[in-house]
């Protein structure tokens, strides 16, 4: 596999990039922060069995004008990537978003509009060369409009719908689409919160995600328990959702 990972310097993206590199896949990192990218690229190279060079390029999801150049850099380094993985996104609490309309604009732009734009550019390249894998992190927050994750969740719902449509439309053209919906995972972002039961570890998430990529699975809940939780949530009637604070 020749994989581009957007957000592969930290958290679950870091874990996925490592897992791919350790089994001998080629990786290329897109993200922000020169030093951070260089350190993560060195980490991946050290873990790769043949010590294959891992490239990186700046790609800020808030700056769509960088997207085409970043994809060119990835294509040049990998001689045509065949997997495109996006774990990067913005997060803010509902309270913070309601208090700051500019933050709201930025978050929905990054998580939905700009992510779709980046994925479209990558998707076209993949389809043009006969297919490949498109893997994007949505969230369990996108499965149902919910009070604590109203705006963030809607941005993730948008991405999930986009991915489902891409699967329907381009599956025959060789595009394998995976929409990952993580529940609580112990990363730097959730540090400081007491993990609920069944909280996931990034390494376990990475293992599951890579297996799902290999098998061409379209939707993946991680940790697996969230598939059951969200099954129940999806079927709760509206009058219940209005009352509960979940």
């Amino acid at each position: 596999m020749k994989a581009v990972i957007v957000g592969g310097t930290s958290g679950m993206g870091r874990a996925i990039a490592r897992r791919l590199a350790e089994r001998g896949d080629s990786t290329f990192l897109l993200g922000i922060g020169d030093d951070d990218l260089a350190r993560s690229a060195a980490d991946l190279q050290s873990r790769h069995p043949q010590r294959a060079d891992t490239g990186s390029a700046i790609c800020d999801l808030e700056r769509p004008e960088q997207f085409a150049g970043a994809l060119d850099a990835a294509d040049n380094a990998l001689h045509g990537f065949d997997a495109f993985i996006v774990t990067a996104a913005m997060f803010a609490t509902q309270e913070a978003l309601e208090a700051d309309i500019e933050l709201t604009r930025r978050l929905v732009t990054v998580n939905y509009a700009n992510t779709v734009v980046l994925c479209e550019l990558a998707r076209k390249r993949l389809v043009a060369r006969g297919g490949g894998r498109l893997v994007v992190f949505s969230s369990v927050a996108g499965d149902r409009g919910r009070k604590p994750v109203a705006i963030y969740g809607s941005s993730k719902a948008g991405i999930a719908t986009y991915l489902e449509a891409m699967d329907h439309k381009f599956h025959a053209a060789g595009l394998s689409v995976l929409c990952v919906k993580p529940g609580f995972v112990k990363t730097a972002m959730t540090a400081g919160l007491t993990p609920p039961p069944f909280a996931g570890e990034p390494d376990d998430v990475a293992k599951t995600v890579v297996r799902a990529m290999d098998r061409g699975k379209p939707v993946l809940y991680v940790p697996g328990m969230w598939a059951l939780v969200m099954l129940v949530i999806r079927w709760l009637p509206r009058f219940v959702m209005r009352r509960i604070n979940f």
Binding site: T9, D36, C59, A89, A92, A141, M189, G192
Partner: peptide, 24 residues
């Protein structure tokens, strides 16, 4: 916790900074 059951804001440490205190 449910609100935080979401992926890492991986590539955006700086632009995310404004939102972070409310997160933790």
């Amino acid at each position: 916790r449910a609100a935080h059951g979401i992926p890492q804001a991986s590539s955006r440490p700086s632009s995310d900074a404004g939102a972070r205190p409310a997160v933790v």
